[in-house]
């Protein structure tokens, strides 16, 4: 396969032809915020709108996950316009995300924390009114817990379950603010066609899907606290 060379943030990098800028950057240790991108997917979903970059010669920022690399291309991941779009997108996302990191099993490994740090903004934004959904948590699976409130609708689990594993236990349902990842008929995961392979859990960038045996259904932070009963 032909390789092309391009510049990302002043670094000369090479990538295979047809590759997207996002992967070229990540493969060379340059981080671009992303949630919905999947390397093996036939078509990028381009749904999360966090991976904005600026390309020399383009008047507007573009999404790195859809932009193919080109010979001699000059990419800037830190452009003010691109970052502004990414920040707004992220703040909107966080406006319906319960921020309770101390009690979340994904604390420390959560991609939302990584993105917030990268964009140097807070997880709790004051810019938008908070709107939470308060959906019931599904702990029916013997393997993992699904908390739809923490889902950012990136679609990674859905793609893996259907395209890579050919199971199709998870999918999107409803529309607009009610949109969610769920099973057929919204039934508990244990009653769906889920095999309990945990691949979706590994793909989840947030605390929406977390392993049970690793955390016993509770977060690490909680477990550390529990042995010492709090004084009245």
């Amino acid at each position: 396969m032909k390789t092309v060379s391009l510049t990302i943030d002043g670094n000369k990098v090479t990538a295979s032809e047809g590759d997207k800028v996002l992967w070229a950057a990540l493969d060379n240790g340059i981080y671009i915020p992303n949630l919905c991108a999947l390397r093996d997917a036939a078509e990028p979903a381009a749904a999360c709108r966090l991976c904005f970059i600026e390309v020399e010669g383009c008047s507007k920022p573009v999404t790195a996950c859809t932009e193919p690399v080109q010979e001699g291309m000059v990419v800037n991941t830190k452009g003010a316009n691109a970052l502004r779009l990414a920040r707004t997108g992220f703040e909107l996302l966080m406006a319906s995300h319960p921020v309770d990191c101390a009690h979340c099993a994904s604390n420390g490994v959560c991609e939302l924390q990584i993105i917030a740090r990268h964009l140097s903004i807070k997880l709790k934004s004051k810019r938008f009114r908070k709107l939470l959904r308060e959906l019931p948590i599904d702990s029916s699976s013997p393997e993992f817990v699904y908390d739809p409130n923490k889902c950012v609708l990136c679609g990674r689990c859905v793609w893996i379950c259907r395209e890579r594993l050919g199971i199709g236990a998870l999918g999107f349902a409803y529309r607009g603010f009610k949109r969610m990842v769920t099973t057929f008929g919204g039934e508990p995961i244990a009653e769906s066609s889920c095999h309990g392979c945990d691949e979706c859990v590994l793909a989840c960038p947030t605390g929406a899907l977390t392993l049970k045996d690793q955390h016993g259904g509770v977060s690490r932070a909680q477990r550390q606290k529990d042995p010492q009963p709090t004084a009245p």
């Binding site: 199709g168 998870l170 999918g171 999107f172 409803y174 769920t182 099973t183 057929f184 008929g185 066609s193």
Partner: peptide, 13 residues
């Protein structure tokens, strides 16, 4: 010949 969740997805959409 599609996952049942896809039908549910369209019905709820």
């Amino acid at each position: 010949n599609m996952p049942d969740i896809d039908v549910y997805s369209v019905v709820t959409f």
